[in-house]
Design a protein around this nucleic acid. Structure first.
Lengths: 342, 342
DNA sequence: TCGCACTATGCAAGCGCTTACATTGCGATT
DNA sequence: AATCGCAATGTAAGCGCTTGCATAGTGCGA
């Protein structure tokens, strides 16, 4: 019936021709359907379907000055912590008609900077970033390009930028309270690197906050290391070498805690009878660790979903939302027990 | 010194004006630097820097008919299996000057289809997909839009599309050989859902391949379920209810295996003395499970990096590379032991 | 000295879409 | 019946870049 198939990808003009209207009407029909009459719309839609038309992205971006694309830069996808939040973020973004442009920084500030510039150059309408710590020049750059930024994974109402996240400091303070409540007074912390990272800093600060309220605490032994199981194990050994009297090790994330637990076992220490260990994140495996890990449940999913809504709103309306705080929950499980009688 | 800053984002024309050349020369200078003379180039680069120029993405995409963007659709980021490969993929992509557009399908065929169309509409120059199972109409669609596709996570040279991955079937057969070598003859498998998923199908097929070489095996008890720890635990209980004589449970991934191990412990079974359990993926936690999990190490990183190179090449040169097979490695650890004397 | 090959640069035509503005047609208002 | 307002649609001007082709400049062999 039909002639030979069109040799090229159909354009708006092809649709317009087939429907017997102008390209403007087709464009409107696609972007604001209620601005064209029902029968015209039907005719256009038929043409669209028949031709298999799909708008050219570049042309649309050029003319409309937006891409319906949101960029996100996370430290890493390697461990599931960020991946879970990202999954929720991406899914929600799709529901809002947005697409995710993704990059990772490997926790490196210089790389993150490059990635931010790249994503903006790639036309990201808005950006999701983790944490506030960043060169002010970068924020200037983003402002100049009028790219809205939403910060996640933290809650800090004193920052000028909106964020959606949780209060790392308070969550860790709460965890530390629980540890202290078990009678522990000789604590140590295995933390991620704190330079360029407000989240890790806040977590350590939270530990200190809680300790400050109890008079007879020994000084906190803090070891900084890269996040990971192996590094957690090594850090644990280091801690016991320096302060063997430690009865509880508060870890900056679950991976570190898992490594610490393994090392404890290796060294013949029972958890929690001889030493208590806590984590942060509540990864899926926390509950099947032996003993199950006491940790902080982070609202990954809510954070991701909220971030998607907020960013979409920011991009579409140009408004700046209020910073949102999401609650964490302490999951008390087997790895935290009473302090041993010394 | 300078006048008031330009009120808007600078364009090619601004750069050209400042450098005293035409926009064509600036464009060439940016895209093929060796086609303009050194001093002209320096002048242009100075102008670029001074103005803080960065090319407009939409305009470039429209004129050049490419976006330097690669789309990837993975089943989920929720578990670290895909996330790790993706991390390597993204990093390598950046090294090739490409950017990652990401979507996830939640293992749902219909969603995946939508996402594929969306990413193409968003201007992805090429696509990374997981597994071959897909509606042929989709492949037609991609061909019509001349979007090259690379399939990953599988190795199947009989498929018309290039892929980079590993042989799920052979890897699982190899694992099963190891299990059989320990004297096990009553096996069960906890598999992910096999409909629309060639990877899970291949893994089960691998188990059967190996069993076929041994005459006295009991029939294989297969339970299909969603990937996860909880679901793995439930599936394990189901298996023991139906075939309590089972001495080894071969799981389709590590999460399932971890769940199975937990359930075994709950039911008072010792691993591996009473029952052996194996996984697939070699997630980071496999080694700290108790007992450490015998599993298949999948070359996530290599796969991601290779995929990035291959796709970039496909997009840039329009060629179709050969399918690449990457080796898996069986990690024999504590969760696999000799079959108990019955 | 002339012509030729070749390089560096400019000119200008799009790429396919959105949108401000203009036009048309029709019912309601006076 | 003339006028006005409004809804539906058309007209056409870009959006900022790439690239085929044209043009000018340069060095070299004959």
């Amino acid at each position: 019936m039909d002639g030979p198939p069109p040799p090229r990808v159909p354009t708006l003009a092809d649709v317009a021709a087939r429907a017997g209207v102008s390209t403007a009407t087709v464009s409107r029909c696609l972007n604001a359907p209620d601005r064209v009459q029902k029968d015209t719309r039907d005719r256009i839609l038929e043409a669209v379907k028949h031709l298999g038309y799909s708008p050219n992205f570049g042309a649309r971006a050029l003319a409309a000055k937006r891409t319906d694309t949101i960029g996100a830069i996370i430290p890493t996808m390697d461990n599931s912590i960020f991946a879970r939040g990202l999954q929720a973020f991406q899914t929600a973004l799709v529901d809002h008609g947005m697409t995710l442009l993704l990059a990772s920084s490997s926790y490196r500030r210089d790389l993150e900077e490059t990635q931010i510039r790249t994503l903006v150059a790639r036309g990201a309408d808005g950006l999701l970033l983790i944490g506030h710590d960043r060169d002010p020049a970068l924020y200037d750059f983003l402002a100049r390009h009028t790219v809205p930024v939403l910060v996640s994974w933290v809650f800090d109402p004193t920052q000028p930028r909106p964020s959606v996240g949780f209060d790392n400091r308070q969550a860790m303070a709460e965890m530390t309270h629980r540890v202290l409540a078990q009678g522990h007074r000789r604590l140590a912390t295995i933390s991620g690197y704190t330079s360029d990272n407000d989240r890790t800093r806040d977590r350590v600060a939270g530990v200190r906050d809680a300790m400050a309220e109890v008079p007879d605490c020994a000084p906190l032994n803090v070891v900084e290391t890269r996040y990971g199981i192996e590094t957690g194990a090594r850090a644990f050994a280091q801690i016991l070498a320096k302060t063997p009297e430690t009865t509880a090790v508060i870890c900056g994330n679950d991976l570190l805690a898992l490594g610490a637990m393994r090392q404890a076992r290796t060294m013949g220490l029972r958890v929690p009878q001889d030493i208590s260990i806590t984590g942060f994140d509540d990864m899926e495996i926390a509950v099947i660790a032996d003993p199950p890990l006491t940790t902080v449940r982070v609202p990954h999913g809510d954070m991701g979903r909220q971030a998607a809504s907020m960013l979409t709103e920011m991009v579409r309306s140009g408004t700046t939302p209020d910073t949102v705080a999401l609650p964490c929950e302490i999951m008390e499980r087997g790895s935290l027990g009473p302090a041993p009688r010394s």
